[in-house]
Design a protein around this nucleic acid. Structure first.
Lengths: 230, 230
DNA sequence: AAAAGACTTTGCGTAAGATCAAACTTCCGA
DNA sequence: TCGGAAGTTTGATCTTACGCAAAGTCTTTT
């Protein structure tokens, strides 16, 4: 549950960039830390928001489920970011479900501390609203993409987003640092796993990517950008 | 430019619901009011955010333009809501273009006042973040829709959203209270004006809607809900 | 080591919707 | 009041990507 937190490790996070040592310490002192296996549900859509979270390691998949059971991935949260911050959106309930995409480590605080943090640490508020803004922006772009682009371009962009957000440089190219299936990609792009599979096969043949079971390595990001459209 | 503002008219707005008379007065005293014709650009995507706005009358269309000139409508703002609130998203630039969908009346304040308002009037902050939250939610739903639903369902839902947000009850049904073209609807739903036209024709034949040039009246909202899917 | 489960690949037919094209209607300004 | 601009309708054709089906790999369990 509780863990010795090294603030010299956490201080470099953008979230803390505007805070002083003592403030960071004060915030961390009230945190609870937790480790979770891949595919663990951290919280579910509609639940009353009891805690908010900071992802230290791993990746979180933010998912919505339609009435007829289809899943849609609205967002991926990379390590270093807050998630489950319902109060920043004036809500007392989580708007979507958060699932760990890989083994993950995160901190959490009771929601009751939120307003205090915002009020006492303006730097915290600033960074938080930047995060919200970035996500709104990302969602906006998703809407534009879904409205105007073909599947191929959407998939290209989705891969690039993942690679930028949580890519790991290898000799073969940049690898997406968590296990990801064709199905997952299809849920990010509003298509089917079949279409994703066909496309990855084609791209593989062209030397654009290199994908195995639950693993995708982008070999030629530049050409993928071109495919993604202007 | 300046206009005698009656705060007894404005006080009922959700935005002011948590504030006292004097606070509302203080806020309104610093506002500049403006009238604009339909299709006026209030601000453009990417411009540095110099002012933030409160729509008193009319409707605002929030639009993104793709590199190749296609337009995508991300949101409609109804009277009574704030818009252009870049600072709430930690941005110093507008993330999208705002266009009046009909003749409109709005107030505005210089961005420099934002932080003071947020700090001095907690009720203002609360309501503001609720607004942001509602918009995030709406965008999220749009993404889910675009990912999982067919054009027919998306158009049905788009019309229902407009009707709920700014519908005017008439004897024939509920009418969308601002001029709206097939093209506009297609830009809200990620389809073409042709498809929208065909669909509206079919619905007209079924007595679901009643549409003329730049005008749509929903006669049977209930059946439209059914069409929109669970 | 076999069997079951999870993920992927590929082929084929089809349907939803885009694109192209052309005519028609309504509105507005000269 | 005439002419053009803006918006709408409808038809014909074509493409994308979905749905269905079946077989192929890799992984885990027993």
């Amino acid at each position: 549950m509780s863990l010795k937190l090294d603030e010299s490790l956490l201080a470099p996070l953008p979230l803390f960039s505007l805070l002083e040592r003592g403030q960071i310490r004060a915030i961390l002192d009230q945190a609870v830390s937790r480790r979770a296996d891949a595919e663990t549900v951290v919280f579910g859509e509609g639940e009353t928001a009891e805690r908010f979270y900071l992802l230290l390691d791993g990746t979180i998949r933010v998912v919505k489920v339609t009435p007829d059971g289809e899943q849609v991935t609205s967002l991926h949260i990379p390590a270093g970011e807050l998630f489950g911050i319902a109060p920043a959106l004036g809500r007392d309930t989580y708007p979507a479900t958060a699932v760990t995409a890989s083994e993950s480590l995160f901190l959490s605080w009771p929601i009751s501390l939120w307003h205090g943090f915002i009020a006492d640490y303006p730097g915290f508020a600033t960074q938080t609203y930047k995060t919200v803004g970035a996500r709104v922006n990302e969602m906006n772009n998703r809407i534009v993409e879904m409205s105007t682009q073909h599947v191929e371009q959407r998939i290209a962009r989705a891969l690039l987003r993942l690679v930028n957000q949580s890519g790991r440089r290898t000799d073969a190219g940049i690898e997406i640092s968590f296990p990801i299936t064709r199905q997952d990609v299809s849920e990010m792009t509003g298509t089917t796993l079949h279409t994703v599979s066909r496309l990855l096969s084609a791209w593989e043949k062209d030397g654009l990517v290199n994908s195995k079971r639950k693993k995708i390595v982008v070999c030629d990001p530049h050409r993928l950008v071109v495919l993604g459209g202007t």
